[in-house]
C-alpha cells in the first residue's frame, strides 16, 4: 500500500540516497536502521516532501505523491514525526495537536488521542516548548495522528528519551497499529526498540538498503554488527 521505487535524493551536488526501493503492506511496522549519517532522516524528509527528490516514485495506495508539496501528501495519508520533534514551542499543547487537525477539516480533537497520551490532556494549556523531551515526543506523535494518517513516518522517536518512556512509545505504536490498522515506517538506532516494535527490519548504509529481513528470522547479532561503529 506504500511503495517507494528508485528514490534518489541529493543535497546540491552530493547525492545521499541512491535508489531506495521499499514496499510496506497495510498495518505493517517497518524499521529502518543504520548508523549516524547513513541517510535515514534524508529518507524520511523526502518521503514527507520537506526535501525534494531527484528521481523516483513514492506511492500511497497507488497514487504517486513524489511531486506533491508536503501538505498535499499529508492529505493523501502520510504523517511525519521528525527527528528532534519540532513541535510549535510557543503554542499550547492543544493548539499543537489542532495543527494536525487542519487537513481533516474537523474541529475537535478525537478522544482517542488523549487516551493514548494522558499526559497531554493534563498539560493541555501549557506551551509546547515548556514540556520535557519525552512529553514533546508524545506531542509530536499526537500531532501526526490528528491528521488521521494511513502511514506514519517516525524519525528516531527514542532519541534522548529514558528507557521506560521508550517502552511506553513502543506500546503506544503497537496500540495505534491495532486500533487503526496503521502502516508505520520508523527510523531507529536503538536495537531493543526496533526488535520490540518492528515486523520487518531494513538496514541502511550510505544511502542504500543493504539488508532486510522479517523480525522473526532476524539474526540479532548480524543487525547489531551493522549498527556497530
Amino acid at each position: 500500500m506504500f511503495n517507494v521505487r528508485g528514490l534518489n535524493v541529493a543535497y546540491g551536488q552530493s547525492q545521499v540516497l541512491h535508489g531506495i526501493d521499499m514496499s510496506v503492506a497495510q498495518g505493517e511496522i517497518v524499521a529502518v536502521v543504520g548508523r549516524n549519517g547513513m541517510g535515514k532522516s534524508t529518507l524520511m524528509k523526502s518521503l514527507i516532501g520537506v526535501l525534494p527528490s531527484r528521481a523516483g516514485e513514492i506511492s500511497v495506495e497507488g497514487i504517486d505523491v513524489a511531486g506533491m508539496p508536503s501538505h498535499a501528501r499529508v492529505k493523501r495519508g502520510l504523517a511525519y514525526v521528525p527527528q528532534g520533534r519540532q513541535i510549535f514551542g510557543t503554542m499550547t499543547v492543544r493548539e499543537n495537536i489542532e495543527t494536525g487537525l487542519v487537513v481533516t477539516g474537523k474541529s475537535d480533537i478525537p478522544d482517542e488521542i488523549y487516551s493514548l497520551f494522558p499526559i497531554l490532556a493534563e498539560f493541555d494549556k501549557r506551551r509546547g516548548g515548556n514540556l520535557s523531551g519525552g512529553q514533546q515526543q508524545q506531542l509530536a506523535i499526537a500531532r501526526a495522528l490528528a491528521s488521521d494518517p494511513k502511514i506514519l513516518l517516525l524519525d528516531e522517536p527514542t532519541e534522548g528519551i529514558q528507557p521506560s518512556i521508550i517502552k511506553d512509545i513502543a506500546v503506544v505504536l503497537k496500540e495505534i497499529r491495532q486500533l487503526r490498522n496503521l502502516t508505520i515506517v520508523v527510523c531507529e538506532q536503538v536495537l531493543s526498540f526496533v526488535l520490540d516494535v518492528a515486523d520487518r527490519i531494513l538496514v541502511m548504509e550510505n544511502g542504500r538498503i543493504v539488508h532486510q529481513d522479517q523480525r522473526k528470522n532476524v539474526d540479532e547479532a548480524a543487525i547489531a554488527a551493522y549498527l556497530a561503529v
Partner: peptide
C-alpha cells in the same frame, strides 16, 4: 514558528 514543519503537518502554507 516553523514553516517547514507546518507543511509537514498538513498546513497549506502558500
Amino acid at each position: 514558528t516553523n514553516r517547514t514543519m507546518s507543511g509537514a503537518v498538513g498546513i497549506d502554507t502558500r
